[in-house]
Each structure stands twice: as structure tokens, then as C-alpha cells.
Design a protein around this nucleic acid. Sequence first.
DNA 1: CCCGTGCCCTGGCGGC
DNA 2: TGCCGCCAGGGCACGG
Length: 269
Amino acid sequence: MPELPEVETVRRTLKELVIGRTIKSIDIYYSKMILDDIDYFRESLIGKTIKDINRKGKFLIFVFDDLYLLSHLRMEGKYYFKDSNEPHLKHEHVVFTFNDGKTLRYHDTRKFGIMTIRKNDLYDIPPLSLLGEEPFNLDTNVLYNKLQRLKKTIKEALLDQSIMAGLGNIYVDEVCFLSKINPSTKANKLTIEDCSNIINSSIITLNKSISLGGSTIRSYTSSLGVTGRFQNELFVHTKTTCPNCKKDLTILKIGGRTTYFCDKCQILR
DNA sequence: CCCGTGCCCTGGCGGC
DNA sequence: TGCCGCCAGGGCACGG
């Protein structure tokens, strides 16, 4: 499932391919994933040139002269760059055709992804306004103060993108392991030092994953033939034994999410 | 304001 | 072998 490193990998790969290209037409095969009126969506983008691709949290932001296209891949969304004469595949829900005959195709088997047009108030309205800072820019005291107000577990808190943006199920397990924090620990029990450890572990984990092209796990493969290698570096998620003490890992549902941890190295407080 | 629940989807897999 | 039913899960809507 695409988390921050996967989205960053897609962003970097896609930038090289689509910046400077102008949209000639848009074919929409599954309109529910477009949150805007379809005619408005199409009319807004046709004739426009992609200037840049940015990212905030797990959102991709296609930058045009006077507007933005916000895209969230959710579980299985991916982009393919192909010639327009290549056949239309099942699950290719939105196809952007450029002036030069190239196409950018959004593919999503489970149809969870969304796209929506934004104007200059992009960061002032949801969903981007609801995102917390990414760990790279997150102050320890800010995280500590947010966690103090919560009654839920640290696992749930770290999955909440308004607390900190960028971690999904896989990376939260990795960060808790590296920080020696039991994922069932109530968020308001954590110390300043824990928060510092969480931020540092998050930065290390995300940067390492980005440098390896993200994770390819379960059904998710990145776009354009890019295969992430970070899944080979995971410490606990999907594993059976603790890489530190060799004890069997515990697998629990926390906040409805499958959670892997070592109950010896990550003592519950 | 906070919390819990359910929904959106479909491919893959376990069980029989 | 085939079929059924459940599960995966990020973000959001909704109700208490």
C-alpha cells in the first residue's frame, strides 16, 4: 500500500516523464473517484501544462499554472505512462492524453483512490489543511503536546495523519519497534524522549525506504515498473521473529489494523 | 470535541 | 477443483 515513501517514489519518477506536457483530452472510466463535477474537472485540466509535481503526506499534487490536481492513491492506486495506442486495461480509471500522444493512466483495482481540483487555497482547506507535519519538520514538543491530549494508543495516533503525516500501517510498526515502544501504549503515557525517538525513527525509516524506492508489499507495486526494495529491510511488519531478541513476535489488531511487535523489546507501559 | 462504527472496493486466499 | 465468504485498509461520514 502506498505510504509516504511509495508516493515520493512515484512523484520523483513521474516528474521526469510528465513535466512540460500539455493535456489534450481526459477519458474517465470510473467517475466516482473524481470528487468534482466531471465536466468541471475535464474543462479545468484540458489545455493545461503540468508544471511540477509536489507531495504532502501521502497526497500527490500536480501543479498547473492556475490550479492543482490533488491525487491520493489510497491502497492500490498507481500511475502508468504509456503511448496512446496501447490498449486500455481494466482498472485504468482515468487516462490523460497529452498533445504528443503520450498518456498518463491512473490504475486502481480497488477504486479507493481519489482525485480533485484545488485552487490557491489548496493548503487552507481539507484534506491538506487537516494534515499534521511530516516527521522531517515536526517539533518534538508539538508531537508531545498532541499526544498528551489523546486517549487512544500510540499505534492509532501515528496512523492519524493529523498528528503526523506520512506513516501508514507498515511504517508505524517499524517506528514503534525502533523506538522500543509497545504499540498498545496509550499515547498520553509517552515522554518527551519517546517523542524524540519516534520522530528520529520515522525520519530514518522513511528516508531509508525512499532511498530504496519504497516498499512493494502484498498487491501493491509502484508505477512504471518501479519495484521498491524496502520490504527486504523491514524489522517486524510481516515478520515472525524479533530481529533483536529472536523471540516470536506478537500479532494483534490495534485500531482495526494488523500490528506486529515484540512484547519483550517493546514493553507495555 | 471525541470516540466508535461502517463504508468504499475487488483480488486473493482459506476452508470445505 | 470450485465456490463461498472473509479479509486487506486510508480516510471520511455519521451518530452517540
